[in-house]
Design a binder for these strands. Structure first.
Length: 554
RNA sequence: GCGCCUGUAGCUCAGGGGAUAGAGCAUCGGACUUCUAAUCCGAGUGCCGCAGGUUCGAUUCCUGCCAGGCGCGCCA
């Protein structure tokens, strides 16, 4: 944000001058922070620098502030400066700094809000990665919404991000899945065929079996081992395809779908094991091979190869993360469910053991979702194969509402998701509040066009006519977008963007009721059209970052 | 026992060291002969879980405790 930097520089200069004049004795240059006050009565920007310096300078904050103001060089941007409260410096800017925001938006278009704060760092963001042996649940849905938006937001903030889905298609559970599918297949011809005790009970397995039976009738007659392998391979492919489809309908697409079995095929597990072994980080005990992960801060050492000779999932995960690192990513972000928090220590250890800094791996844990319907918690039983899936949620409340609800809250909050509220097409639903603002804007612009009132280039518009407080409030909000996106990216907090969308929509609605556009005098009309047009563009921008549609009419 | 998350208005949640702690919903009262009332304007509401500590200043950072959710496998 240019204004902030400029004000910080002005203050730093003033401190220098005051120091040279002998009024204060400054050892080294302090970091000057500028913030936007919560209360607009406190100016456009404020600094707490005088309070921060009170201690080192052994001087009253307000006195320091007084010296700063005395030595502050005149700047055309500043209307006035006040010393307030315990020693805040409140800056009131001339209104035209806000008007310049519209020029910036016009110039940058859909890239307005972008920044370079990510400095082109190459990030791999892995999320969802649900097992391909069952439908995705609501936590997967939450992860999908958050991961996808975070990808978009970080890209806007100058990171180079690849999104990736890790398919666990090599584990134990794929065998259980294969046997379940096989049993359902055999039951079609022989209802008395047995179903495994630990099999997956869901209807989706039966549905798959019916399809398998009609598409590949020859499978039933295969030898058992061959038949089971067919069920495994075909079934997993179908599940992955279905997951892709479900996610696409949720407006989530991944750059890469990474199959675990590839790691096994290419010998990647053996490769990481020899790396660890060469560093003396493996040892045998009780017939198993262990990774000395405690040496890197993990709670306990981890089994790498079981006593029966099979690898554990950890081994594949280490190989997977090594693969990511070898692809040149300097930051690996794993977005995981709360049941995986114990996994952080061992993967951090692995990354370090492989010779990379511990903070190369960043694990984001999102918390559970409680589904409510009519205020009552929805009961689910995974064992009985009865639970609400990602697709159920999308079907019931719609893609936009579902995404917005997941994105409104910070990921570490235990989310109460009220299906009744989210599916209501009413004022109670926040997603409509934002979309409605956009629809109103489109309506104005369309009617303006109908009467031949075009949105003019801002250089041809007298923006100084935008004097109303509701106009200034909207402009202020528009000006905040770049740092809002940068902060959401830096802290990995997409909910900031959802909040921003709600704030901007609210300020626009207020403007809408207080200020008319069409039917005003020509100059004012064009000034307001420029404002309205910019808000529309920014709303579209933030809704896109959230993966929510921006309807032109509602 | 160890670990992760949470505790802020009646409810759902913001608030990443600052000024009088905010928003939506719910409640109550207003505003459509002019661009969409899915909107706006106004009103009340708080030992910020408890107790210490750091700081000029703590809802925010640290420690302990209490309460709730979840996890701690040679499963993935």
């Amino acid at each position: 944000m240019k204004q902030k930097e400029k004000l910080a520089a002005l203050i730093a200069d003033a401190l220098d001058s005051a120091s040279q004049a002998g009024l204060i004795s400054l050892a080294d240059k302090p970091a000057v922070s500028i913030e936007v006050p919560r209360d607009t009565n406190h100016g456009d920007f404020a600094s707490n620098i005088a309070m921060v310096l009170a201690k080192p300078l052994k001087m009253a904050p307000r006195q320091i502030a007084q010296h700063i103001v005395e030595y502050l060089t005149e700047d055309s941007m500043i209307e006035k400066v006040e010393i307030a409260g315990p020693g805040f410096l409140n800056f009131y800017l001339r209104l035209d700094w806000l008007h310049r925001v519209l020029a910036a938006i016009e110039e940058q278009g859909v890239t307005y809000g972008n920044s370079t704060s990510g400095q082109g760092e190459r990030v791999l963001l892995e999320f969802v990665s649900a097992n391909p042996v069952g439908p995705m649940n609501v936590v997967n849905a939450r992860a999908a919404a958050i991961g996808d938006s975070l990808t978009r937001i970080m890209e806007a903030a100058g990171f180079v991000v690849a999104s990736e889905y890790y398919v666990n298609d090599a584990g134990n559970q794929t065998q259980i899945f294969a046997r379940s599918l096989e049993a359902r297949l055999l039951q079609i011809e022989d209802p008395s065929a047995t179903f495994p005790d630990d099999g997956y009970p869901g209807d989706y397995v039966t549905d798959l079996a019916v399809r398998l039976h009609s598409e590949h009738p020859e499978v039933v007659a295969m030898a058992s081992a061959e038949r089971q392998e067919f069920c495994r391979s075909w079934g997993i492919d179908q599940m992955v395809a279905a997951q892709k489809e479900d996610l696409r309908s949720f407006n989530v697409e991944f750059d890469v779908w990474f199959r675990e079995h590839r790691l096994h095929q290419t010998g990647a597990l053996g490769e990481v094991m020899s790396i660890l072994d060469n560093k003396g980080l493996l040892y045998e005990s009780e017939g198993a091979l262990w990774f000395r992960s405690q040496a890197f801060g993990d709670d306990k050492d981890r089994v790498i190869r079981k006593s029966d000779g099979a690898y554990t999932y950890v081994t594949a995960d280490i190989a997977y993360h090594y693969d990511k690192l070898k692809r040149g990513f300097t930051k690996l972000i794993d977005l995981l469910g709360p049941d995986h928090h114990g996994y952080i220590g061992r993967m951090r250890a692995a990354v370090q053991a492989l010779g990379y800094p511990a903070d190369t791996l960043e694990v984001l844990i999102l918390q559970y979702v409680s589904l409510l319907r009519d205020g009552q918690q929805v009961k689910m039983s995974k064992r009985a194969g009865e639970f609400i899936t990602l697709q159920d949620v999308v079907d019931e409340v719609g893609r936009d509402a579902a995404r917005f609800f997941f994105l409104m809250r910070s990921m570490e909050s235990h989310l109460d998701f009220d299906l009744t509220l989210a599916s209501e097409q009413s004022s109670e639903n926040p997603v409509f509040y934002v979309q409605y603002a956009h629809a109103r804007i489109c309506s104005i612009l369309k009617q303006a066009e109908d009467v031949g009132a075009r949105v003019l280039p801002v250089k041809d518009v007298d923006l100084s006519l935008l004097q109303h407080t509701s106009e200034a409030a909207v402009l202020r909000k528009l000006a905040e977008l770049p740092e809002e996106i940068a902060a959401a990216a830096e802290y990995r907090e997409p909910h900031r963007v959802a909040r921003y969308a709600l704030d901007l929509a609210g300020l626009f609605h207020a403007f809408y009721t207080h200020c008319h556009v069409l039917g005003e005098a020509e100059d004012l009309k064009h000034a307001r059209l420029a404002l309205v047009n910019s808000v529309g563009l920014v709303l579209r921008r933030v809704l896109t970052l959230l993966g929510v549609s921006a309807p032109e009419s509602m």
